[in-house]
Each structure stands twice: as structure tokens, then as C-alpha cells.
Design a protein around this nucleic acid. Structure first.
Length: 765
DNA sequence: TGGGGGCACCTTTTT
DNA sequence: GGTGCCCCCA
């Protein structure tokens, strides 16, 4: 391993202006070459800058030509950003970095060149989740498995998990085999793969898995890529799964020049198969690896950084970094307790208006939630106030039904063998071709060993299918033939318009009087427009298969509302982090499923959240939370306790938590679920379930009105009787002394005070 | 075949 | 609380 020192390099090459302004650690990360390098880049330390500069540096110093560099990212956004930034440094030559892209797009490129090695044609289509589920459903039905108990979704997840680990059907171990439908998992997986091959299809996982198989089994192909790729760059290494890791390791064996950039503290996709372990054992996987730490944060003020750093030290599985900033002081992280979700939304909206009134733009602020259902309360409030906002990562354009229908038409025109497309649109719009007819066609197709279009053609000439269905099929097939004819000599976007029109698809939505219909028509217009941006139909379809959303103009002055996951890589001067309550954040469900590992991942999510803030981070929790129409009495997140007190300022508006003194240490944490007030049968059942690894929701506690009855988990009807233990927002815990219609007399523990709480029942919302 | 009503579901989701 | 899915009925 020869490691040139920085001065050696400076001597060897002329000064390089793009290196100006980098700090020492960043320079080291850019210039350390000739061996594996792991750049541990903390939040806000200039990760993307280092990666792009490194790529530019390799090109500028003539170490490799653009097509000799493999550079993989996870998102299209990151890939695009890199292209732009490298372009800005070294000029237009980037157009010629053909192997810069996402894991999946690079894999697709490779796979198209060698598809026949895994039994596919190079024109294979990339399936989306919807197609995948439909296919799996058919397979489960065919295997006569109870599809209620073993759902297609469940199978999709299981198979995805296997693919993420790079495991083929034949390679499953005993444990895996039994993880679905009493040992039938393996067979189903094999059937699914065989079906995909017949249909000449790939799902997302296959793009990587097939490429991996080729690398593993075809030494000459691998050698070709070893010769080709002299440098390998990887972004967000902490999010790689096992398949991606194996893929990278095989490719990097050639040059041994691999540079991975990542942050173990920001690994938040474990539930999708990402393995933090990959980054944790980098130096063992790649012997002689240099590890460069980027620890200077350019984003946040001292308090924000310290609060986040303090929190993340509770994690055991981490390499450890000490982030620092020159931006001393600033505002402490604010923690606020609110009565319920509505109060929380009111509070956040008010704070945003305050901020804006000090002549800041709305776009300075973001609300980051754990789960998307939390967004609604904020949307309601924002709409009521007329406060401009946008939801980031909402329903995806290319996943909308109407867009997918249109794609199916195009796919079927392109290839009449696309059975999935055929099934999707044969009766959309309604043509009187129902399930029975489709089933007949499917069975005939299987018997004759032809595609469904061909089977339908044959059947329509016999008496197998009669009446309306028969004429409809004939018309449909004739239309298809005509469109295929037209496809030869018309632009694909114009053809799309013709097809949507003539098939009656547009008309279907025009006649639809539901409020959504107008939006659907808009989307179809947008679809035709975006098709026009691609040279060919193939290029367009490849693009939509690998890209999940259209770019939206992001320059409007609006508050951003999104999940914590969607916030990775972004930053805002003012960040709100609502819903820091046990069961919500950390999410009870992920804890139930994966225990400690999940807890650490939730903590990393908290870390990601706080580190999005440049100037102010405001964290809120409530006492009562409405989840799926039920009230839950909730307690503050353990993550709040884990924040270093010196960097936090806590206030409470609820009266529940003792706010008599200043400072975080005076916030009274209510009893945890193990404490006496939560020792009801419901809680016990819940705890037993959790311990046994079974997911179950915490019991519902009646929290309507201003009075919470503690521990009546089973009974949520709001019946009160003498002796009930109660909890009041102002007076704390107490005992019911007398019940008189809607009037309660309660003695409160703390003050020993007797209060008459009137008419709370009739105030129920 | 297609529409209506009952019912189970309900996290995060770069590709 | 809202939605998508399945079954049953016309």
C-alpha cells in the first residue's frame, strides 16, 4: 500500500484550484488514494463536497478517464447532484461519466449487457411493487395457500429480504425456508423467479441479485469490469445491504481503489435490509483501509450539535466521532410539552408565524415527523391559517394508478408478450371483460404456452368466450395492432395521446365526476409531456422504472412537511420535531419487531432529525395522542431524557409536567408503563405480548375531556366510579371521591386538595 | 359483470 | 379516523 503524503501529491501535480477552501481532513479524504478508503463523514461535515471533489480530482490529475470510474449513490437525486457538482468543477466532461448513478441504474446497465447469462433478454422490463404483488398473489393462489394468513405483501417482503441478502432460492437455509407458509417459502420464491424469467422481467432486487450472480459465476465478465473500473466511489455506505456490499466487494477487487463515504450514525434504513455492520467492519473487509474522519460541522450551532451528539452516544454500535463547530452558542434545543396533537400543531404553526414575522421566509422551516399519519394535524392547522406548506415525499407520481395504466398501454404496444400489462388494462376502462374471461385467457395461455395476447386472439375465434366479452376482445386486439402499426412512424408521446384517447381511457376519467378525476387528467397530461423529454419509449420506460418521482420546482416559499426519513441530506434554519413520545418515537412497532437494534436505529433517526437544524431545533411531545381514532395517554420519549441537559431548554404548557423551575432537569417524567398506574390488565397483556415478540398496541386509555382515567385499559367507555385513579392536566393524580352525573369530585394526591370537576363528560368532542 | 356495504388494516420506503 | 379490499347480491 503506497500512501503518498499530501506534500508528495502537491509536488507531483500542479496546484488544483478546486481543493482551495477544503479543510485538512476534507483534503485528506479527497487525496488519499491507492487503497481502500473509508470517509466517516458526520452530519453537516461536507460529505458530498468531498465525494465530488474526489471524483473531479481523479479526473483532473489524469488518474483515470471518465468511463473508468464507478460511482454509486442510493438516490437519483444524489446522483444528479453529483453530476452537476462535478460538472461545475471540471466542465462538461461529466456527461461522459457513464457509470455514475444509483446502485440500481448501474446494475440495470450492466444487466442489459449480459442478460442472457441469467436467462433474460436484454429488453427485460423492470417491475414495480404493484406488478410484483399481483404476480405473487397469483403464485400464492396457485399454490393453494391461505392468502389471508400468508399475504402477498408478506411474501414480497420476505423475498425482498432474501434478495437484499443476495440469497438465491437454492441457497436458503432451513430457517429461511420456514419463515413463510410452513416451509413453502423456498418453492414460492423459486416459482416467482421462474415466472419473472418467463415474463422477461426483473424486480428491483433482481437488478442487483442477477448482476451479483453474473459476477460470482462468470469470471471473464467480472474481469472485464475489473479492467474497466479503476476507481470506485460509494456514497451513503452505511445504507448498503448485504447484496450491495458483495457487489461492491467483487467489483473493487480489481483496482482495490474503493472509497466509501458514510456515517454510521445516520443509518436509518435497517428495515429495508441496510446493514450498519457493513460500515462498522469496513477495515476488516478491505484490509489496509485508511479511515478518514470528517468531524468539523459547518451546519449547526454549538447547542444543536452538542444535543444531537450527546444523544447518539447512547448507541453502542458505532464507530464514534467527535463533531465540533466554530459556531459557538446559539439557541439551546427547545423541548415543549403540549396537551395533545392539536395543541402541538397550533404551537408549531404559531412559532412559524413568529419566525416569519421577523422577516424570515417560510422555506426556512421544516416539520419532521416519524410517521406520515402525524402530518394531518399539521396540514389541518396550516390550511386553516392559510400558511403555505408542501408535503415532501407524498404519493408518487409514477405510482399513481392512472399513470401506471397509461404505462401498461405503452408496454403492451411495445411488446405484446407483456402479460402483466395485458392483465392490467384488458378491462380498463370497463369493456365487459370480467375476471372469469381473464382467467380463461390465462389458463389457455398457460396450456398453449403462449402469451395472453395470443391466447386471447385464439379464444376469440372459438366459442370459449361469447357475447360482449368476445366482441370487446376482438376490438381490443384490433386496436392494439393498429397502435403498433402507428408506433413505427410516430413520436412516442404523440402515440401515447392517441392511445389514451382511442382506448377510451381519457374519456373514462372525463366522465368520472368524483373530485379526484380532474387531478388524474392533469397527471395524464403531465405524463405525455414528460414522455416527450425522452428520445425513445424504451428510454422513457427505463427512466420511470428506476426513478420514483418527478422533480418538482422547489423554489417556492413554503414550510416543508415530511418524515424524518425523507429529511436525510437536507437542512433548515428552523426545524420542528413533533411527537417525541414513547410508542410514537421510538416507534413501538419497530421496537416490537427488532428490539435493541431497532432502538438504536430510532435513536439515529432522532440524531438525523436534530442535525437538520442550523439555528433552532424545537422538539415537542404531548400527553395525549389520537392514533387511528383512539386516544392514547402517552409519555415523553426516552430520547428526551438522553439529551444532554446543558444544551436543552425545556418548557411545558400542559401543566402535567412540573414546569415550576427553569431547565430540563425539572421536567417531571410521568411513570413509565411499568409503574403502578399502568399496571392494569391491559398493560400487562401488552407487555407480555411485546416480550413474546408479538406486536400489539398499547392499551387505549380514555383521555377524552380534561380528565384521564389511568389504568382502565380494557374499558374505554369513560365510566367513572368512586375510587378510580385519575389524572388531571392541572392537578396531577387523584382519586375519585364521588360521581354525580357529569360531575366528579376528586381528591388530588399532591395537594391533598378536593376539587369538583364539572361537566367534563358533556364537553366530549 | 359491476356496485355497494362490511371489514381489516394501519411505520419508515432512497430503488 | 380513513382507506382499500373482498364478498355478496342484483
Amino acid at each position: 500500500m503506497s500512501n503518498l503524503s499530501i506534500s508528495d501529491m502537491a509536488r507531483a501535480k500542479p496546484p488544483t484550484p478546486y481543493l482551495d477552501g477544503l479543510n485538512d481532513e476534507q483534503r485528506k479524504a479527497v487525496e488519499t488514494m491507492d487503497g481502500p478508503v473509508l470517509v466517516l463523514a458526520g452530519a453537516g461535515t461536507g460529505k458530498t463536497r468531498v465525494l465530488t471533489t474526489r471524483l473531479a480530482h481523479i479526473l483532473a490529475t489524469g488518474r483515470a478517464r471518465p468511463w473508468e470510474i464507478l460511482c454509486v449513490t442510493f438516490t437519483n437525486k444524489a446522483a444528479r447532484e453529483m453530476k452537476e457538482r462535478v460538472g461545475a468543477i471540471i466542465g462538461d466532461a461529466v456527461e461522459g461519466v457513464p457509470w455514475l448513478g444509483t446502485f440500481h441504474s448501474v446494475s440495470a446497465q450492466i444487466l442489459r449487457r449480459h442478460a442472457e447469462l441469467v436467462g433474460l433478454k436484454s429488453s427485460f422490463t423492470i417491475l414495480d411493487t404493484d406488478d410484483q404483488l399481483r404476480l405473487l398473489k397469483q403464485i400464492i393462489r396457485a399454490a393453494e395457500i391461505d392468502e389471508k394468513r400468508w399475504t402477498p405483501r408478506h411474501l414480497a417482503q420476505t423475498i425482498d429480504g432474501w434478495k437484499n441478502r443476495g440469497v438465491l432460492p437454492s441457497e436458503l437455509d432451513e430457517n429461511d425456508r420456514w419463515s413463510f407458509a410452513e416451509g413453502k417459502g423456498q418453492e414460492l420464491y423459486a416459482t416467482y423467479q421462474a415466472r419473472l424469467r418467463t415474463l422477461n422481467c426483473c424486480d428491483f432486487g433482481d437488478l442487483l441479485l442477477h448482476t451479483l450472480t453474473i459476477f460470482k459465476t462468470q469470471a471473464d465478465v467480472l474481469a472485464e469490469y475489473h479492467r474497466k473500473f479503476r476507481y470506485v466511489l460509494v456514497d451513503e455506505y452505511q445504507d448498503t445491504n448485504v447484496a450491495q456490499y458483495l457487489w461492491l466487494r467483487l467489483l473493487a477487487q480489481g483496482s482495490n481503489n474503493i472509497c466509501c463515504v458514510g456515517d454510521d450514525d445516520q443509518s436509518i434504513y435497517g428495515w429495508r435490509g441496510a446493514e450498519v455492520d457493513n460500515i462498522l467492519r469496513f477495515d476488516k473487509d478491505f484490509p489496509g483501509a485508511e479511515v478518514v474522519r470528517l468531524e468539523r460541522n459547518y451546519r449547526s450551532t454549538e447547542h444543536i450539535l452538542a444535543a444531537a451528539s450527546g444523544l447518539i452516544t447512547s448507541n453502542k454500535d458505532r464507530l464514534g466521532k467527535t463533531l465540533w463547530t466554530e459556531d459557538e452558542g446559539g439557541e439551546k434545543v427547545e423541548v415543549r410539552g403540549l396537551w395533545d396533537g392539536e395543541a402541538e400543531a397550533r404551537f408549531v404553526a404559531e412559532e412559524i408565524e413568529n419566525w416569519v414575522s421577523k422577516s424570515h421566509p417560510y422555506s426556512d422551516t421544516a416539520v419532521l415527523v416519524r410517521a406520515s399519519w402525524q402530518m394531518r394535524a399539521f396540514e389541518d392547522r396550516f390550511i386553516m391559517l392559510g400558511l403555505p406548506y408542501k408535503v415532501i415525499g407524498g404519493p408518487r407520481f409514477f405510482e399513481r394508478a392512472e399513470v401506471r395504466d397509461a404505462h401498461a398501454y405503452m408496454r403492451l404496444v411495445r411488446s405484446h408478450e407483456d402479460d402483466l400489462a395485458f392483465e392490467r388494462i384488458i378491462n380498463t376502462p370497463k369493456r365487459g371483460i370480467g375476471d372469469t374471461t381473464v382467467q380463461k385467457i390465462a389458463i389457455a395461455a398457460r396450456e398453449m404456452n403462449v402469451c395472453m395476447s395470443d391466447a386471447a386472439r385464439t379464444l376469440s375465434q372459438t366459442d370459449e368466450i361469447r357475447g360482449k366479452a368476445r366482441t370487446s376482445i376482438k376490438v381490443f386486439l384490433r386496436d392494439m395492432d393498429r397502435w403498433r402499426e402507428q408506433a413505427r412512424d410516430s413520436r412516442h408521446d404523440e402515440l401515447a395521446e392517441i392511445i389514451l384517447d382511442e382506448s377510451g381511457y381519457t374519456a373514462m376519467w372525463r366522465e368520472d365526476k368524483t373530485p379526484q378525476a380532474a387531478g388524474k387528467l392533469e397527471n395524464l397530461k403531465e405524463l405525455v409531456r414528460s414522455m416527450g423529454e425522452y428520445e425513445t419509449l424504451e428510454a422513457y420506460l427505463e427512466h420511470v422504472a428506476l426513478v420514483t418521482d418527478l422533480d418538482r420546482a422547489g423554489d417556492e416559499d413554503e414550510v416543508s412537511l415530511m418524515t424524518l426519513h425523507a429529511a436525510k441530506g437536507l437542512e433548515f434554519p428552523l426545524v420542528f420535531l413533533p411527537g417525541w413520545e414513547e410508542t410514537v418515537f421510538p416507534s413501538q412497532r419497530s421496537l416490537d419487531e427488532k428490539g435493541t437494534r431497532a432502538l438504536e436505529e430510532e435513536r439515529r433517526l432522532a440524531y438525523v432529525g436534530i442535525t437538520r437544524a442550523r439555528e433552532r431545533a424545537v422538539l415537542t411531545f404531548t400527553a395525549n395522542r389520537m392514533i387511528y381514532g383512539r386516544w392514547h395517554s402517552v409519555i415523553p420519549s426516552r430520547f428526551i431524557d438522553e439529551l444532554p441537559a446543558d444544551h436543552v431548554e425545556a418548557r411545558s404548557d400542559t401543566g402535567i409536567y412540573d414546569s415550576s423551575g427553569p431547565g430540563f432537569e425539572n421536567v417531571h417524567t410521568p411513570p413509565s408503563p411499568s409503574a403502578s398506574s399502568y399496571s392494569s390488565p391491559g398493560w400487562k397483556r401488552y407487555q407480555a405480548n411485546s416480550a413474546a415478540g408479538k406486536g400489539s398496541r398499547p392499551p387505549t386509555i380514555n383521555a377524552k375531556a380534561n380528565l384521564i382515567q389511568s389504568g382502565n385499559a380494557g374499558d374505554t367507555t369513560g365510566k367513572w366510579k368512586t375510587g378510580d385513579r385519575v389524572f388531571h392536566d392541572k392537578f396531577g393524580y387523584g382519586k375519585v371521591k364521588r360521581v354525580d352525573g357529569s360531575k366528579l369530585t376528586v381528591r388530588f394526591d399532591k395537594a391533598g386538595e378536593k376539587k369538583v370537576v364539572e361537566s367534563f363528560l358533556k364537553d366530549l368532542p
